[in-house]
Every structure is written in C-alpha cells, then in structure tokens.
Amino acid sequence: MFFQSNINRNKYFLQNIIFLFFFIFPNISFAAGDAISYPKNDWSFSGIMGTYDRASQQRGLQVYQEVCSGCHGLRLVAYRNLKALGYNDEEVKAFAAEKSVQDINEDGETIERPARSSDKFVSPYPNDLAARAGNGGAYPPDLSLIVKSRSGGADYLHALLTGYKDAPSNKNVPDGMYFNSYYQGNLIGMPQPLYEDGVTYADGTKATPAQMAKDVATFLAWASEPELEDRKRIGISVICFLLVLTILSYFAMRQIWAPIKSRAKKTS
C-alpha cells in the first residue's frame, strides 16, 4: 500500500540525512580547523568502552607534578579529585599538604597554610599577567581543559610534547623560541619539557619522552573530562534501554496499525 511505500522510501531519506550529518559535517569542521594532522595514538580512554589507565594516569600526575607544574596551573581540578586515580584519602591528604595556599586567618591577615584535599590545585602564578611576565611574554596556559580545548585532543598534546626538532636551516628561530613541528607556525615559547629519564617512575616504567608524553596526556585528558567513565557507562545502559523501547514501540505500532493496513489493502 502507498502508506508502506512511503515508509520505505522515507527510511532511505532519513538514512541519507543522518549520513550527511554525521559524515559530512565533521569533515567541514576539520577542513575549517588546522591543516596539521597529528599521529594517532592508541588511548586507553578512546572508544565506546574506553576507561583511563590508572597506572598511566598516576605516572602522568607525576610528570605534571615534576615537569609541568612549575609553569602550568591546573586550577579547575581539586586534590580530592585525585581519588579517581586510585589514591585513598590519606594519600590525597598528604599530597595536598605538600602545597601551600593563601588564606585569611581569623584576624583578617593573609597567611599561608598547607593545602587541604578540598582545595583546587595551586597555580604557580598568582594571575595571568604574572605568568606571562615570568615566561618572557609567553603565557603558559592552564592545563585543566587543555585536551578538550585543542582540536586533536590528547593526540595533539602527545605530538606537541614529542615534536621538538632541530629547525630547518631556512627557518629563523628567535631567542626564547623553540622549533616544534606540531605547533601552529612551528615556533613555540615553551622549551622542550621531556627528556629521557626526566622523571623516575615509581613503578619502574622506563621514562622515555614518548612514554612520559603519553602518561601526562592521559592524566590531562582525565583532568579535562573527569566524567568520561561515568558518561560511557551510563550511556551504554541508556542506549540499550532506548533500543528496547524503540523496538517494542515499533511492534506495538505495527499491531495498532494492522487493522488499518489490512482494510486499506482490501479496498485497493
């Protein structure tokens, strides 16, 4: 019947529209973004079931702590959040207590006190201007959202951290700038941060620059999207539920419409 034929035809319409939407639009945004492409890594947290590799996260925290935190803040992450990395309350408390934060005492005087687990990561500079001034005018961005706020995400970060090369002879690298093959314009204000055995991992993992880059990118991916594991876990059950509901409602619809369809068939 004509009703049914419309269904079939429209199914393809819908499919086409969905296809257009999901496959053409990303290409647009990529084309509009940057021309540089970054080597793809195999991340523990990618894919529908992906979760953060705890050991890598913990090593990444160590790299952040020992290498990055001198210049880069992590102001949106609280020490208590580190429990998600597999640390217990005591460890988090001890970790926080090594830092000191400014506070005001009962008499209104500014004091320094050890950080508590409810405090956010202490930033290395009191404000953006000081951060810029302390780094020869180049602003070291806060890393709380670095993976989410760069196209390419963790792959970009990994590429950037391992992308320091000797500049080609025709490229003039001014003082205080460094050549990086993955940075926009190739000139970056940050000196190469990761060197062989730059940190000593507690778990005995060999600290190659690639390994450290991978670990710190995993840690910072978590800092950007701490909800990722919950999101995917809930997402799977929600989608299963919706599929069951959709299938049930399809058969319920068939059943309800059956008399109309058969009558229409008779009249034609």
Partner: peptide, 28 residues
C-alpha cells in the same frame, strides 16, 4: 504510538551524541 516510535529513534541518536560524542558539534 507512531510518535513514540519516532521519539525512540530520535532519543537513541541523541543519547549517542550526548554520551559518546558530546563535543562533536561544539568547538574546542
């Protein structure tokens, strides 16, 4: 019932975006 069926398909696609590609249509 037909609207419910359509809603089921719509919500499945919507949930896929929300839970698995939440920033796909946004800008970094």
């Amino acid at each position: 019932i037909k609207d419910l069926f359509g809603l089921g398909i719509f919500l499945t696609l919507f949930a896929a975006a929300v839970f698995f590609f939440p920033n796909f249509m946004g800008h970094p």
